[in-house]
Computed example of a mutant assay.
Amino acid sequence: MAENDRDDEEPKVHDKRRIDPETGEPREQTPAPAADAPADDKAPEGGDDGLSDDDLALLADAERDLVAEYREIAARAQADLKNFRTRVERDRAANREAVIAEVIRSLLPVIDDLDRADAHGDLVEGAPLMLVSQKLRAGFERYGLRRVGEVGEPFDPNFHEAVVQVPEEGAEGETVKDIIQTGYALGDRLIRAAKVAVSVPASE
């Protein structure tokens, strides 16, 4: 641009007076943008939602606490489910054992008859009745049925029923002297106590 052209330009004057000198009326004031106001295209500090760093930190802590709480709830629920399944399996096994015990208890008179037949020599090897006895006992043993009561063992009221007491000189404590009726147990469950004669120390 030529130097003459710059000289021809008129200087621009900004009239910042609050009162119009011609009318004497107050002029409308246009508020100036605050110096610290963010630009239209600039997000405020702390994120688009206008939260401060402290607010964001509090939200993060709350989120971590909530996640930890839900994890604890899930862990407790899983433990409760595991315990429930364990109880169901235990109850199922106990009910199964109770049913088997009841069936065996109902058949004990048959076993007693077979025992008496065997004692009288009626069960001959290879005879049909002997085969029935062997199969019946093998089937019960497969379920864990065992005899209770042996001559010479200490008397145990949990497994023995003392039908008669026999005083004996030199006897120490109470001992099974004879088996009157065989007892049976299924695992740890007593089905029938053994009826026994018990030798006891002779009274002086």
Rank of each mutant, 00 (worst) to 15 (best):
P167D: 05
D40A: 12
E69A: 11
A35I: 06
V13T: 14
T175Q: 07
D118N: 09
D53M: 12
A75P: 02
K82F: 14
A37Y: 02
E22N: 14
R76N: 15
A98P: 03
R146Y: 01
R137I: 05
D49S: 15
L66W: 07
K195V: 03
G183I: 00
A77N: 05
R147F: 05
F155M: 03
V13I: 15
K82V: 11
N4Y: 12
E9Y: 08
I179H: 00
L123K: 00
P109F: 02
G149P: 04
A127L: 03
E97D: 13
Q29A: 14
N4I: 14
S52Q: 06
V176D: 03
Y70H: 07
Q181D: 06
R189A: 03
T23N: 07
H14D: 08
D61N: 07
S52D: 12
A32S: 13
V198R: 00
Y70N: 06
E102T: 07
S106V: 01
G126H: 03
G170H: 02
E22V: 12
A171M: 07
D48C: 08
I100L: 08
R71E: 11
L136N: 02
N83R: 15
R27C: 04
P109E: 03
D118W: 02
A79T: 06
K177W: 05
S199F: 00
A79L: 08
E45D: 13
I111W: 03
A68V: 02
G139E: 01
L108T: 04
A93S: 10
A194V: 02
L51M: 09
A185F: 01
P157L: 05
R64N: 06
